[in-house]
Design a protein around this nucleic acid. Structure first.
Lengths: 243, 243
DNA sequence: CAGTGGTCTAGACCACTTT
DNA sequence: AAGTGGTCTAGACCACTGA
């Protein structure tokens, strides 16, 4: 049967996911929805909802008339670009133990573009934190986060800044980061960024310009990050979408 | 009522999508699921399925207990990286009329890595096409596609190669491209690639290394593309996923 | 508290794939 | 023809939001 947990659908999803991980499905074929429902003692709708979630995670493939199948491991990619939520986790997925160094925490006046993206008056105070992520001692990611000071309760010190940014926002702003809209630009590292990342002048890198939104689609975070690519690589899955 | 079309759910989805585009929902608030169901004369399940699809496309946001809301236009991004399916379409979304130039069509022996990703014997013949996409005359994307010759019916000429690659595969290989797994690397353009793209030596760019799969998760396409970023920019939405 | 989306059931028929 | 996922219905109760 199924272990306890949140919703029935979610428990069914985890149950199937565990079975996939344990390779309990012969030939990668998952039993028919009706069979699963009978086995687990739930309705077919519940099974279908669970399978839909797994399909969306690219864990399985459904083919009408044919059946439901476990995806190849290559498809179940770690550190998919669109699912990265924490740089620490992304680096861990690459097999290294990351370390975080807080370079700076300061309050400054928002410049024009920042004020605009965050919906502030120009010059309104923002808290800026800069962090450097290392892998085996080598700097890999440089991140600069900007949060409106008005949203943050209390003062911010280095220890606060060390936590992942969404933890910080959840704890200190009374709301949760829901998603990022990210823009991705290839750059040649230079000056301070190159030095901080211990990279050659004009070394190729990727810059992320991101805006973080809360559940109500209000912008609460403006972030810029630089990635050295020798040590971290991004993958994603592209699918056709309906018109 | 609802216009004719594929499935009821899909028709409901399009109906709602049109209403969103026409701004027929006051204050961006979409009626309650039960109301929509009654209005359209379908079950609430059908409405929910349609809304789920729209939610996945980031067209709407659902908040339990509160309601369903139209997303801000900024969220409904064009040319999202994970939804790009045709470079022509992506360029059009940037507001330019793209042109395509076929640089080369040839048959060659697969090298080791290509043979491995495509599941061929080493040295097995692959058809290679190289295409250059321009925007207002400026080269923007250089794409190199490799397809196993055994999959392709008949000979391939420039006119065949001019079509989008999935059209070509659908028409000539008897199967459909279902999705890509893409790896993204920042590079400094040099040599032939820099020259072809009319870019400065060591100009920053992004290289895509991709494998295209069919419905049965079989690899049928190995592609490499280079993008000049001055003219095209990529965005994506990052969301938290369930553990 | 009323209203909303979230979960869940039981059952029916259809479209497609495989044998 | 048998078996599979896809669609659709009608109805129930729960969890959460907001006034």
């Amino acid at each position: 049967m199924i272990s306890r947990g949140p919703s029935l659908t979610e428990r069914v999803r985890r149950h199937i996911k565990e079975a996939i991980a344990a390779k309990r499905f012969e030939g990668g074929r998952i039993p028919a929805e009706a069979d699963l429902a009978a086995q687990l003692g739930v309705s077919r709708t519940t099974v279908r909802d669970a399978l839909s979630r797994l399909e969306h995670e690219k864990a399985i493939t459904r083919r009408q008339g044919a059946g439901t199948f476990v995806n190849q491991p290559g498809l179940r990619i770690k550190s998919k670009l669109d699912e990265i939520w924490s740089y620490e986790e992304a680096l861990k997925a690459h097999g290294y133990e990351p370390s975080v160094q807080v370079l700076d925490v300061r309050t400054e006046a928002a410049d024009g573009p920042t004020a605009e993206t965050l919906g502030l008056a120009e010059g309104g105070p923002v808290i800026v934190t800069e962090k450097l992520f290392r892998q085996d001692g080598s700097p890999v990611i440089l991140a600069r986060n900007r949060v409106p000071k008005a949203l943050v309760a209390g003062e911010v010190d280095e220890a606060d800044a060390r936590a992942p940014i969404w933890d910080f926002i959840g704890a200190r702003c009374g709301r949760a980061l829901s998603y990022y809209v990210s823009e991705l630009t290839p750059v040649a590292l230079s000056g301070a960024a190159a030095k901080t990342l211990d990279a050659a002048e004009r070394a190729p890198a990727i810059r992320f310009d991101e805006v973080g939104y809360d559940n109500g689609n209000q912008p609460i975070l403006a972030a810029t990050s630089w990635f050295r690519d020798e040590l971290i690589r991004f993958r994603l899955i592209r699918r056709r979408t309906a018109p």
